[in-house]
Design a protein around this nucleic acid. Structure first.
Lengths: 107, 107
DNA sequence: AGTGATAAGTAGGCTGTCTACTCATAGGTT
DNA sequence: AACCTATGAGTAGACAGCCTACTTATCACT
């Protein structure tokens, strides 16, 4: 999975994972790995800054906690985050339709 | 259509357009516009450097000609370009499947 | 002379993802 | 005791593709 390909599509995926419930960064990386059938194995250097970006945008809320002696930052999808997720989903439909039709063969 | 979303997926679309036959840069931009139902309206500053990149990679061959007093650079899909296009197509299937399944709801 | 379409290109900026690293705790092995 | 792995979060800097804004050129039409 190429880095350029993912670009611009990660945010939506992060929001989608958080739609199922609050989760911390490390858990989100694992969830992405699981949900993608093992294809997505994103480095922390990609995901953590992305989560901070989403937080700054107000789409997710983060809070610190300590579990098993380790500090976690758990993120929750905000109301505006839900709106953003819906927007990203419709954008994806549009985008994938366009690329599919131009590329041919694929959906 | 966001710039980040397109990133990494343009090359494949360019190769796909050239699969139908040789075409010059300006014509390729129009073909993309037409094939995408008017959605893709890529600036020359994006497409021309991309075509040069594909040419350097050996996936397309370019040659100058003059039509109606105007100079054109017409590109042809090379043999290795066909292979690359096939690779891009299967990558797209994979990628869109992963994003779709993570994003949920879509495709 | 001016405008718009056709045709190609370059320079520089922006930004998201990546690599490579630091810091920290817990548990298990040697 | 020393080491390794997993868990957990983060930063700095590099890379690269797409963008905006610009230049150059020809032709047709007003």
């Amino acid at each position: 999975m190429n880095a350029d390909a993912i670009r611009g599509h990660l945010d939506g995926m992060l929001l989608a994972v958080l739609e199922e419930g609050p989760l911390h960064g490390y858990g989100i990386i694992e969830a992405l790995h699981r949900r993608s059938g093992g294809t997505l194995d994103l480095p922390t250097g990609t995901v953590y800054p992305a989560l901070r970006r989403l937080e700054r945008a107000g789409w997710i809320d983060g809070s610190w906690s300590t579990v098993g002696g380790r500090k976690r930052r758990t993120y929750t999808l905000s109301r505006s985050g839900r709106g953003e997720l819906a927007r990203r989903r419709s954008e994806w439909i549009r985008f994938s339709g366009v690329v599919g039709s131009v590329l041919g063969g694929a959906t």
